[in-house]
Each structure stands twice: as C-alpha cells, then as structure tokens.
Nucleic acid binder design. Structure first.
Length: 879
RNA sequence: GCCGGGAUGGCGGAAUCGGUAGACGCAGCGGAUUCAAAAUCCGCCGCCGAAAGGUGUGUGGGUUCGAGUCCCACUCCCGGCACCA
C-alpha cells in the first residue's frame, strides 16, 4: 500500500501511478472477449516534434471517456499511432539535411514519452506509424483493388509548378502566386495523376449522413453542403456556332443545368463562363471581350468575394435557339458563371433569379415574368424576395405550361425536352473526384511501373509493398527518388523488359482514411484487416478537431464503403459518435515598431493592468515597463509566442492539474481560454483533495467500525443531508458524463469536496459516511485526474487499483427525505419558500402555501384564484 | 451574399421538461494566522437602494400563472463556403 505524505508531491504521485499501470499492463485491450467493447479513438497526431496544448486537450477528452467506460465494465480500446508522412518532414530535411525518416522517428519517440507522462490509458501494443511498410503496403494493395474496380483511374491534373526548383508545389507552398523557396512566379502545368472516384459514392455518402445521429449537426451539414446535391434538368440550346476549323462547338449544343426548369419560358439570355469554348471563339475577333475574359480568369474564386462582387458581362454576339419556343437567345459571357461547375453555362431568367435580374437591369436585357405567386404584382423596378419563390408559384405566360405548380411544370418541361432529345432530369454534385498523386518523396509510393511497351502496369500483389527508401535527403529541387536508380529501375511485370517505377506518392489523407481499422488488427502481415475488426469496429467514439470536419472524415467514410464493397468489412460507417473539440487559446500581446514591425510578447513576459473591478485595461512589458498592446485571445502559435509548453506544465503542476484544468474550464466543444490563474486554481483543488485524504487517514479511518452499518443505520440530520448531497452530485455527474459535459463533472467533484470538508469527524457513523462519500468523489474524479485518485484509493485502503473499481451509482436510500422545500411564488414572483412533508398531495401543499407568512404578506388579503403546484419544485399562487 | 452556431456578473462558465438566474472556479475586496511575506483558512462579491424592495440573461415585441429557455422581428459576434444556376 502506498504511503501518504503531508504535502501533495505531484511528481512522486504521478510516477508511482504510471509505474503501477506499466507493471500491470493496465491498458491492454484483449481481443475476442465476451465483454461489450468500447473503441475510443482520438485523431492520431502528425509527429511534428512535440505535443501542443490542442493535443493535450484532445487526448484528455479521449482518456476521460476511456477510463469512464473501463470502470463501467466495457472492454475498452484506446490506441495511438502516428500520421507520419507529410510535407513538414521534407521541409525539416531541407533545413537540417537530415532524412525525413530519421527526423520523423525521433519525433515519435519524444512525443510518445510526452503522452506517457500525461498518463493516458493507451494500448501501446497496437501502435502504428503510417510511414512503415507494414502499414502502407495495404494502401498500395487497396489502391490496386480500386484500379481493378474502376474506382481508381488516371487523368490529367493541374498543378503548381516552380520553374526554378523544377518541382511541383503544394498549395500551401505558394505564397501570393510565388514559390515559397525561390520566389519564382508559379506556373500552372497539366500532368497525369491518379484519382479516386469518390463521386461514385456521392449518393451513399449523402444518404448515410442520416444514420450518423451521434455526430454534431454542424459537421453533417458541412458534409452535405460539400457533397452538394442538386436535382434539376440538364438540357441544350441548339446552335450553329463553329470554331476555327469549321466544326460545330460541342456538336451544336449549349448545355446548361437548372433547378428551375419551370421558368424555362422566361429565358431571355444565356451566360457562359470565361473559359467556355463559345467565349473563346467569340473573343477571337473581339479584343474587348478577350480582355474581359483574361480579367475573369484572374479574378478571385472565393465564394465570399464573389458574392459581393459586381456582376459583369459582355455579349458574345452569338445566339442560340430556345429548345421549346425556337426563338433566338443571345449568349453573354458572365463573370459569375463557373467553368468547373456543370457545363460552364447557365440559362438566365431575370424575372425569377436575383442574380439574373440584376444583370438584366444593368445591361438592359428583357425581363419576362412567367411565375405568379398569389395576387402579388410583379414589377421590373426592383427585385422582391417572392420573385424566386418556387413553393407557391404557378406558371403564366408559358403557353402550354400555364397554370402548373413547380413540380408539375418541371416534369412537363423535362418530358418535352427529352422527347426532342435535348435534355433530361439530372442530379448534379458539387463533390469532385479525389486526386491522390503527389509529386513528393515522403509518402506512400503509388504501386505502378511504367513500361515503354505495356504502358502503366500495376505492381503485382506478391511484389508489395513497394518500399520507399528511407535515407533520401530532399533539397527542395524536385523529388529525390528521381536520383535513386535502385528505386527507379525495375522489370515490367508484364513483359519483363527494363521499366521505370512511378515516383509519385499518395496524398497523406489516404494514410489516415483507414488507420482506425488497422488498430483492430495489429501484426497481421497477410491481410489488410481480419475478423477482429468485426468485434472492434466501428469506432464508438471519435474525437478530433473541427478542421477535419470535411476532408478527413469524408475520405474515411468513402474508404470504408470501398472496403465494404470489397467484402473486407461489414460496417458502412466507421465512426459511430463524433466529438469535435474546440481550440486552445491564449492572450496575445504585441508591440508595433517602425524598425522591426510587429513584435510579439509571451504572456509570461508582460504584466496585466486591471481597473478596480478587475477588468483588464492594458499590459506592460516586464523588461522595460513600457505598454504593450493587448490583442485578446487567439489560437496558440509559435509565431505569436503565446503557446504553452505541456512539459513545463507537467513539471510545475503535474499531469493531473493540466488535465483537470482543461476539463473544468470549458465544455469540450467550445474554445478554451488558457489562464495561469485558472491552472493555479486547479492545482489548489488537487492539493485540497490530497489534504482531505490526510484528514481521512488521520482523523477518521481509526473510527471506522469493523462491520459497516451504513446500509441500515438511521443517520442524524446533518449526515443524512451530507450523504444526500453527495449522491445527488453523483447523479448529476453521471448525467453530465453521458452528455460529455466534463466541465460540470469536474465542478460536481469540487462541490463534493466542499461538502466533505465541512463534515463532522467525531464518531464512527460520520467516518462511515465520509468513507463512502470520499470513495465516490475519488472514482468520479479518477477519469480526469487518474494519478492522484489512483494513489489515494490505494493509500486509504479502498483498493489496489481504482481503474478496476466499479463506477458508483446513486442510492435511492440516500436520496429520500422526510420534508421538502418548495419555492413559493405569488403572481409568478419568488417570495420565499415553504416546507412540506415529502408525501404531501397538491391540496395539502396549496393550503400550506397560502397559510405561509410570505404568501399572506404578498397576497394583500386577496383570495387565491388559482394555485399551480410543480411537484418537488415550486408552488405559485395567482390572486 | 448564403449556410450553421452563439450573445448570461470584472472573467471562464452553470441552470436536464418553461419553474429560486448567476452553481463551480478565477479575479477582486475584507478578516484570521505570521515578526513579515508566501501558503492556508474564514467571510463578502450582478446592478440600484440605508432598508423594505425594485431591477436584471444582446435589442424590441408576443405566448404563459411563470421565459435565459418557446414564437416573431432586429443588432452584433464566431465558424464554414461553392456566385452551384
């Protein structure tokens, strides 16, 4: 049994607990057990060097849930791995002339030590790193299966090309249109690359969002918007516009997509994107149009910019034929039409589309009303919201379509277009296929061999993995694999002739798209996954940052569905419940100087100034006493010097204090504002827990009777109310844990301690009540602060291992009371309280309430017209 | 511009179904202890008021015996974005 020391020595306590967990292999999750499983996963980190506070928060949330479920009897798996491929390793290699592999592996070692010092209940036997061949072999294997199924395919892609370094740049390496290292103007180049046809799964990815009822609503919405389904009609305006060779452009059809086919009789012009072939052709003899097109191509493509930007256009001089009326319709080039969406052209109905309306007014184009909403009067003077109403509108001025509602009109128009072979109903997706080729060294090699005779040949399965050499040092000028004949040169699997290996590697989102499934099947080198996934998957709880709400989560869902279609897994969705934690913020202090620009100050380098009420009014730098500018809270970042080092925190206050502070200060989904005073407060609380442990050991434990009597004893009032309070707080904490609202769980623990510190200590029954209550407190607190609670649980004789103790449940016997206090209201205003017997019926309560002194005073002699009794809560007298 | 979320003391936040607004903590103030300080402990702490009481959850209205919570309109803040036809 551990010994109690007078003072809380967090270092000794935490080392002792971690030693115990290590000796007893406390966090191993056995496979194939009859127990119900709980798979708790936090997004694995990129091994950038050291943990930041965002990681600490993320993994603390996961650890609280892990320990809570372990104590509830689940077989819990909480694994950890490393998202180890990526650009930062190459940048570090360029800077330090160290191979990315070496840098990555040493970072992993260091960060693993940090995770252990925080006491996370991680099953390290399942650790994986995506840069190891035994992992990425299966990226390659699945990619080959996708090729066979037609889910993976090759096409040209546009990339950023640095002409000086002769290399492809990632978007983040392009700064203001120039290469980050060379400063050279970046060019657009078209090169071949591999794509995954995620659009084949668009329908399922969208529909299955409905099954993810334990995901945050906003994440599901973001995914739905990203997939972007719209149903409408794709149809063509016939034309005879020819290109220079005399051939009809697009076979004489201008294709458009519309969700408002019901307004087709209101079309007064068409608009095409600047890159559209008709625009290109029209610009040939029209310098003004050519200049306009060039301007459009350089314009912003950000939606927010575009939404407020002036709609501009120029006529092409060409006409197309309206497919229903046969009338001629002029074609314009519009800066608001995107080539990348649909066919890069739209029909314009100024009367019923706000953007078309504005455009038509600006360029004096005709506006033709074709939808009537009720008896509202249409006017071309100004746009009204209801012009675009499709629910309540009826077609007018539309010939044979007159008098139809939205759905009927769309159906009728689509049928006529189909009869003329000029169009059909169609679903349109915003989602595009996923390009996975990266012209980078530090990634998973794409398993393809290029042969002069046979073309691109997949690497046969028995030659997998294609192993990436780990000793290359990139220098920024292109992919170092190009200088590695031992990697490049190989035999064509088809014809045996000398051939060349593909040097492109896969997007690192591939690595993270299925790692959660591999955690369930560690060590299997003959299969990607095995039957153990049927037990562990899907992940019961996934925790990570909101920044992954779209890409990572969507790719993982897609990858799961592909694996499912290949018969590898039975589940269709990988993550049952999702928690997106908020960011960690800290104060920002800066000073602007003409010489050096903005200088940032770390929070410990300044002194805050407060006014009398405690409000922050300013700050001064410690080094010169001069004022600095206080910039409020911002995300922790190296450049702004407001980061907090987890190691320093652990050393000064301990892992438990850091964990407690993170859980207590804000609910998990909200941003968390760092505060030195706040962490002091958390430390103070843990010291008080420790001190109460000492009090219990010295003043109460000796008074405990050999046979406990608590279950049957009639308690004096003060002890009964203490016991009731603790059990009520326990009930609250259990409820909040279900809601994953950990801040109020922490506060319930503080309230329990506040109550315990006031408890009587002078007799055996008091000792029993305190023993039970402190045991509850230690267990409820243990998922948040596992070390101190482990130590006290052992030292105070509760048991050897708190993690294997049962989670406490509130007892009905502890909650009952003879008399209850109800809030007393007169005319809805609180006027005091009234005590009634626990079993009193409404009539009795009404009588007691009216008779009370407070009620008599505020009723001013009027009779009660009505009395409302809310059982257990309040009584309101209306008079 | 569109979509989503939000606004509660000096601060972080609490309030499960519409039922005592401000739990818990931080900061601040007063006191005890100390030669002194730190640490610790006790007390006070939305606003107006001497008190009784009044008032108060971004603004304006509404529903209700009763609204932070529900409804309508508005303001501001945060996150996301694709002029998506």
């Amino acid at each position: 049994m551990s010994q109690m020391s007078d003072k809380y020595d967090h270092t000794a306590v935490e080392q002792s607990a971690q030693q115990f967990w290590n000796d007893h292999q406390s966090f191993l999750a056995p496979d194939d057990t009859s127990k119900p499983k709980y798979y708790c996963l936090s997004m694995f980190p990129y091994p950038s060097g050291k943990l930041h506070m965002g990681h600490v928060r993320n993994y603390t949330i996961g650890d609280v849930l892990t320990r809570f479920h372990k104590m509830q009897g689940y077989n819990v798996m909480q694994p950890m791995g490393w998202d180890a491929f990526g650009l930062p390793a190459e940048n570090a290699a360029i800077a330090n002339k160290v191979p990315p592999a070496k840098w990555t592996y040493s970072n992993i070692e260091y960060m693993k030590g940090q995770l252990k010092s925080l006491g996370f209940a991680i099953d390290w036997s399942r650790e994986l790193a995506t840069c190891k061949p035994d992992y990425y072999k299966w990226n390659q294997w699945l990619f080959l299966r996708m090729l066979e199924k037609g889910v993976a395919y090759k096409k040209t892609q546009v990339v950023n090309w640095d002409p000086v370094d002769q290399t492809v740049l990632a978007n983040e390496q392009v700064i203001d249109g120039r290469g980050w290292r060379t400063g050279a103007v970046v060019e657009k180049r078209e090169i071949p690359g591999y794509y995954l046809a995620i659009t084949q799964y668009a329908d399922e990815l969208l529909n299955d969002l409905d099954t993810l009822d334990q995901w945050p609503e906003r994440v599901r919405l973001m995914q739905a918007n990203w997939i972007g389904k719209s149903t409408g009609v794709r149809f063509a305006f016939p034309h005879d516009i020819k290109d220079e060779s005399g051939a009809l452009i697009n076979d004489g059809k201008l294709w458009v997509f519309t969700t408002r086919a019901d307004t087709i009789m209101g079309v007064t012009f068409c608009a095409v994107a600047a890159e559209h072939p008709i625009a290109t052709q029209a610009a040939k003899n029209n310098p003004e149009l050519a200049a306009f097109i060039e301007k459009c191509k350089h314009g912003s493509v950000m939606e927010a910019d575009m939404a407020t930007m002036e709609k501009e256009g120029l006529p092409t001089g060409f006409n197309v034929t309206h497919p229903i009326t046969g009338q001629q319709v002029p074609v314009w080039v519009g800066n608001y039409v995107l080539m990348s969406y649909g066919d890069g052209a739209v029909m314009a109905v100024p009367a019923h589309d706000e953007r078309d309306f504005g455009f038509a007014k600006k360029y004096q184009l005709p506006i033709k009303e074709v939808i009537k909403v009720g008896d509202k009067a249409f006017s071309t003077d100004a746009w009204q919201e209801w012009y675009g109403d499709k629910e309540n509108g009826v077609t007018i001025n539309s010939g044979k379509y007159d008098g139809l509602g939205y759905t009927a009109a769309v159906d009728a128009v689509a049928a006529d277009l189909a009869a003329k072979d000029l169009g059909e109903k169609k679903k349109q997706w915003r989602l595009r296929d996923w390009g996975i080729s990266r012209q980078r060294y530090w990634g998973c090699p794409i398993p393809i061999i290029h042969c002069d005779d046979c073309g691109s040949v997949p690497v046969p399965d028995d030659q997998l993995p294609v192993v990436l050499p780990e000793d290359c040092v990139p220098d920024g000028s292109g992919n170092p694999l190009h200088k590695r004949p031992d990697f490049l040169n190989c035999a064509c699997p088809k014809c045996g002739k000398a051939a060349r290996r593909e040097t492109d590697t896969m997007d690192t989102f591939v690595d993270s798209s299925w790692y959660y499934a591999r955690f369930a099947t560690p060590g299997n080198d003959s299969a990607m996954v095995d039957k153990r996934v049927d037990y562990w998957m899907p992940v019961d709880q996934y925790i990570g940052g909101i920044e992954h709400a779209i890409l990572h989560l969507l790719y993982s869902r897609f990858w799961t569905k592909v694996m499912g279609d290949l018969g590898l897994v039975k589940y269709r969705e990988p993550f049952k419940r999702l928690l997106t934690q908020g960011m960690v913020l800290n104060h920002l202090f800066s000073r602007r100087s003409d010489k050096t620009g903005i200088e940032w100050f770390a929070p410990e380098e300044v002194t805050l100034q407060h006014d009398a009420s405690g409000r922050v009014t300013g700050a001064t730098a410690n080094r010169d006493g001069q004022p600095v500018e206080y910039g409020g809270y911002g995300t922790m970042s190296k450049s702004k010097r407001n980061g907090v080092d987890p190691n320093a925190m652990i050393e000064q206050y301990g892992a438990d204090t850091s964990r407690f502070f993170m859980m207590f200060t804000a609910p998990p989904e909200q941003t968390l504002e760092w505060s030195d005073a706040g962490i002091e407060g958390s430390y103070r609380f843990l010291k008080r827990v420790w001190n109460f442990g000492n009090t219990f050991a010295s003043e109460l434990r000796g008074k405990l009777p050999a046979t406990r009597t608590l279950a049957t004893a009639k308690l004096p009032d003060n002890l009964a109310s203490l016991r009731r309070e603790v059990h009520l707080l326990l009930k609250q904490a259990n409820y909040d844990l279900g809601k994953q609202q950990f801040n109020t769980v922490a506060s319930a623990c503080m309230k329990m301690l506040n109550a315990l510190e006031k408890a009587p200590r002078d007799n055996a029954i008091a000792a029993e009540v305190v023993e039970e209550a402190f045991g509850i407190l230690l267990r409820v607190l243990s998922p948040i602060t596992p070390h101190i609670t482990h130590y006290l649980w052992d030292a105070l004789g509760y048991g050897r291992d708190i993690l294997s103790a049962d989670w406490p449940q509130p007892l009905d016997a502890a909650l009952v009371q003879d008399e209850i206090e109800l809030v007393l209201q007169v005319l809805g205003k609180t006027r005091g309280s009234v005590k009634v017997p626990a079993g009193a019926d409404n009539k009795a309560i009404e009588a007691l309430a009216i008779a009370s002194e407070a009620a008599q005073k505020f009723m001013e002699g009027k009779p009660a017209k009505k009395v409302i009794v809310v059982p257990g809560r309040l009584v309101n007298i209306v008079c």
